[in-house]
Write a protein that binds this DNA or RNA. Structure first.
Lengths: 229, 229
DNA sequence: ACAAATTTAGACACTCTTGTCCATTTCGTC
DNA sequence: GACGAAATGGACAAGAGTGTCTAAATTTGT
């Protein structure tokens, strides 16, 4: 291993390509077939790689599985935080902006490939790998919920919303935005753009009926003053 | 089969007991291990029955699985409809009554053994048995959602709520009532009574902020007069 | 073009699971 | 107590999947 000197971190190039295609194929197959139902030959075929290569890269089936869950968790979290950073802190049109945010969250984090796969794996194997998914729970909901809640708290503080408990409101916001996608999610389907938009629109409207200020920002300039009830 | 005359429908007694204990054990194991991960010996052991008995009763693994899904679907549906029939059509205290209803729905239909198992099986195997779960979709959400929506429509018509689209409102009601149980559901856990009550309380409060009449029933005496449903 | 590393295909041993068969025992009923 | 139906346990063949090993082919960096 004398070449460790200059390239240091970078293993061969094609090597990395194989690694990625193994991970891709494996998440696909594990999701479709469940851990027990998946087999290595299937993954190898789908990855366009020989079985031995998978063993070279990951050791065994279980290690491969763990690697995939970690990978998905990481990627999904990154996506969620990226999307949270687009939260409308200074909304021009509160309803439209929140709907757009809800749609982004759904499309980029929940309905996309990674989101769908991670959800499925958690549901399917969550009970069998408590420690692994405890990790997910901490990194995922444990960090993303509070981040969203903080954004809503800020929005309320700025006078755009009338919220008692931002944590509750944040969870309800997401629940409402996804209310009409539940059955599709259950069966492992992917809702199309229209469905996502519909659900988000209905959800945000209800959310604003519950938490919106009575008079929109346009008429009263200083709504922040007396607002609390 | 000469004894078919008087008992007619009733097969032997102990026979039926075995059947039940096989179904119980099998749902347990299929849920815990997924279809592919479950094995017949495990089920036999858990049922306190020999493997051969399972084959005598159900033919093969897949038939057993199908029988279980149908059984769970049926039982869950019955529970949901029974609970829907307790919907508060003439609420004394709208908030309290809706909270109690939401709690009943959760405890009796969603968080109980059957509900948990059916949900898990749908999530886990839904993609692999499209026809089987299409059946569930028709019998389940296809019939229960409209039934709940009809109840909300009636409540709105009677002047207790201000609802545009009862179908949307019904889905949002359930989404809100379960908003705080999502993570627990994901990981296959069973929320305790307090969690269910908390989530229902928060959810119903938000629901009523969105859809409740501005002035509570107390002040205006005759909202019931114009009601017809 | 060379040398090292990686990939490949195939064979292999091993284990686990399904579903069947059968002789024996137990159970429920009369 | 006797009869028939059902349950039992254990053996069994067949198949599938995991993980290892090997020699040959291919790719990669220099």
């Amino acid at each position: 291993m004398k070449l460790g000197v200059s390239p240091d971190i970078i293993p061969p190039r094609g090597h990395e390509a194989k690694r990625v295609s193994i991970m891709d194929a494996a998440s696909e197959v594990f999701c479709r077939e469940s851990f027990a139902g998946a087999n290595i030959d299937m993954i190898a075929a789908e990855a366009g790689v020989s079985r031995q290569t998978i063993y070279n890269h990951h050791g065994d089936k279980e290690k491969l599985f763990v690697a995939i869950v970690r990978d998905l968790t990481e990627r999904c979290n990154a996506g969620i935080f990226a999307t949270i950073s687009t939260f409308p802190d200074q909304p021009k049109d509160l309803e439209a902006d929140l709907i757009a945010f809800a749609v982004r969250l759904n499309q980029n984090c929940i309905c996309n490939r990674d989101g769908k796969f991670l959800r499925k794996l958690i549901q399917t194997e969550g009970e069998r790998y408590p420690e692994l998914f405890a990790e997910w729970r901490e990194q995922g909901p444990g960090r993303t919920w509070p981040a969203i809640a903080a954004r809503f708290a800020r929005l309320a503080h700025a006078g755009f919303l009338d919220i008692d408990d931002p944590d509750v409101a944040a969870r309800q916001f997401l629940a409402l935005a996804n209310a009409e996608l539940q059955t599709t999610f259950m069966l492992g389907g992917t809702p199309d753009e229209d469905e996502v938009l519909q659900s988000a629109t209905h959800g945000v409207r209800t959310f604003l009926r519950a938490f919106g200020k009575r008079q929109p920002a346009a008429s009263a300039g200083k709504q922040g003053a007396l607002a609390n009830a």
